[in-house]
Amino acid sequence: MILDLHTHSVRSDDGRAKVDNYCQWIRKKELPLDGFVLTEHRQYDDTSDYRDLEDHYGLLILKASEVETDYGHVLVFGVNEDLTNAFDFARVDNHIGDVLSAARRCGAVAAPCHPGRPNVGLFAHYERKGRIEGVDLVEIYNGGSRPGEDEISEAEAQRFGYRGFGGSDSHIVSRIGYAATEFDEPVANIDDLVSALRGGRCHARTFR
């Protein structure tokens, strides 16, 4: 089962993709995706209901968040009310240690995305400020990466012993599925996703 774990819709300030257009694009282009996760910037969308789209297109649509920290952007899967109360999703300067520990405490998974990006990625911050504890999973394939960035992500993740996943980071419809994550077992809901990510029962795929 393959899911794109990093997508943005019009709910993100720089997103220009409608969720139903993602679905029809996946089907029309026969992309090898079984679903995708919406990771809107600095927020958790607890209002949108995509069950009709899931039924119509036979796709799994899950919701997560992309938050901002002093060590770069972090995807958070398994967001719940406890977690949204634990730190301010809207801030751009959350301490990554707070985000990682809050996610762990609330049963979620927090994982830095595009960590190989110069200046703003996790590994660039490591060079300047040193390694932090609590990271065990990073996005090694990002569909928006510049040439060479994913190679840095992959090599550094291997060096630090981090597991990897993939996501397109699509902000427009036609970019969905550039990178994704293949799961060893079926994922039916966000709990299954969190469990698989925690257990390492998945691996990153790139389709660029």
Binding site: R16, A17, K18, N21, Q24, W25, G144, R146, P147, H171, I172, V173, S174, R175
Partner: peptide
């Protein structure tokens, strides 16, 4: 990326890439 049969409006994704193949504008 989308066609509206009633209005005949079409949605188009746009990208502009620089000389290194990096997406500069979406």
């Amino acid at each position: 990326t989308d066609l509206n049969e009633e209005s005949h409006l079409v949605e188009v994704d746009l990208t502009m890439l620089n000389h290194e193949g990096v997406t500069s504008v979406i």
